[in-house]
Amino acid sequence: MPANFKINGRSVENLDIDPMTPLLWVIRDELNLKGTKYSCGKSLCGACSVHVDGELVRSCSFPVNLAEGSEVTTIEGLSPDEAALHPVQQAWIEENVLQCGYCQPGFMMAAAKLLERIPNPTDQEIKDSITNICRCGTQPRIIKAIKRAAQLNLSQETTPKTNIR
């Protein structure tokens, strides 16, 4: 059965793919969006995190047929462009968070969702909610960046973020 869904606002129509293929490989290899990463393949690390209809999803363990008719957002679609950064990306730059950067798109996708649920999280709430893995040890800066993003968000409450729902 061909797959149909939307990704970062763009339509994907009649994609010929095994319906059990993990969404991750569809995003990476069929749609050539390489910002979403493979690391554990078993829903353990969060490197492959994307949003599907507004929910945080680990795409390595999410068959593409479950995304049928859905809206998928990847790191490439988190901000409309570099001139209008999502607060999470803005905060990530301001806190100079990343090291190798490989795990970071997944962290940013998770952080963006956390801030929708808890607009101004405490350290403990961040620790309880973000279960992605980073081997380079950026965790201290991730906590700071999420708090900074919360501040950025609160200070620009009135500017709606177009492609984040």
């Binding site: 910002g35 979403t36 790191i75 490439e76 730059i93 990343l98 950067g101 970071q104 798109p105 940013m108």
Partner: peptide, 8 residues
């Protein structure tokens, strides 16, 4: 920093 934050 920026290209990596953009996933590029």
């Amino acid at each position: 920093l920026i290209p990596k934050v953009m996933g590029k």
